[in-house]
Design a protein around this nucleic acid. Structure first.
Length: 218
DNA sequence: GACCAGGCACATC
DNA sequence: GATGTGCATGGT
């Protein structure tokens, strides 16, 4: 892992190549910041397709609002989010977030706006069920903070390209991107979304690199 | 049937 | 700090 002006230029070229190939991704797929937060928890180690079914169930019952999710029973919640997998765990995770959201911000996203990003990040990481990737997804996609989201695809893609070591810690990888790239919310938003597109469709566990849009960098 | 998916908590060394 | 395991549905 290197941090040089050369790295900056390389990471920009990766972005440009991905953007030319996939086009804009319009992330996060959610109608409100609150929906983004719930989606971020539900999509842990799960395909978005399954999360959509869970979100759809919540919407059908008119439960996808802070007030309703704060009071719904864990059993009912678990049943509704079943398609997203780990439903008992995720039900507890959502309940933990809702308790925090009520206690600290009275279930109002606007009350989070004045809080500095590093403070918010610490708070989120202290909630049961919210680890670094989920916290950063919430910060970037729900709260519009300039935080680079690292996921399994990021590690896989950039370690295959020898820009990272696959054993690098989450924080190391995050600081690699954040110190190499300009702190720009829209840029981080698009970059992570493009990485996911590449990971889903091309950079799989056993990839066919012959038709990968990034093959020229290998 | 095996493997994988936009992780995380917890136990153990 | 590194490594191993449980959590669980749905698609390929």
């Amino acid at each position: 892992m290197r941090k040089t002006t050369e790295t900056t230029s390389i990471l920009r070229k990766y972005f440009d190549t991905l953007f030319d190939f996939f086009g804009p991704q319009f992330w996060w797929p959610g109608e409100t910041p609150f929906e983004v937060i719930i989606g971020a928890i539900l999509t842990q180690n799960t395909t978005w397709k399954n999360v959509e079914k869970a979100i759809s169930n919540l919407k059908k019952e008119n439960l996808l609002s802070p007030d309703k999710l704060y009071t719904v029973s864990p059993q009912k919640l678990a049943t509704l989010i079943k398609p997203s997998g780990y439903y008992n765990q995720k039900s507890k995770k959502i309940a933990s977030f809702m308790r925090y959201f009520k206690q600290e911000y009275n279930l109002n996203i606007n009350n989070m706006q004045p809080v500095p990003t590093d403070i918010l990040r610490d708070q989120l990481l202290n909630i049961f069920g919210i680890g670094p990737e989920t916290a950063d997804s919430i910060l970037l996609y729900a709260l519009s903070r300039p935080v680079f989201v690292v996921d399994a695809y990021t590690r896989r893609i950039f370690s295959r390209h020898k820009l990272l070591d696959k054993n690098d810690s989450y924080e190391n990888i995050r600081s690699f991107f954040e110190t190499s790239l300009e702190k720009n919310i829209a840029f981080y938003n698009e970059y992570h979304a493009l990485i996911v597109s590449l990971g889903k469709d091309y950079c799989k566990p056993t990839p066919k690199c012959t038709d990968c849009p990034l093959k020229k960098f290998l």
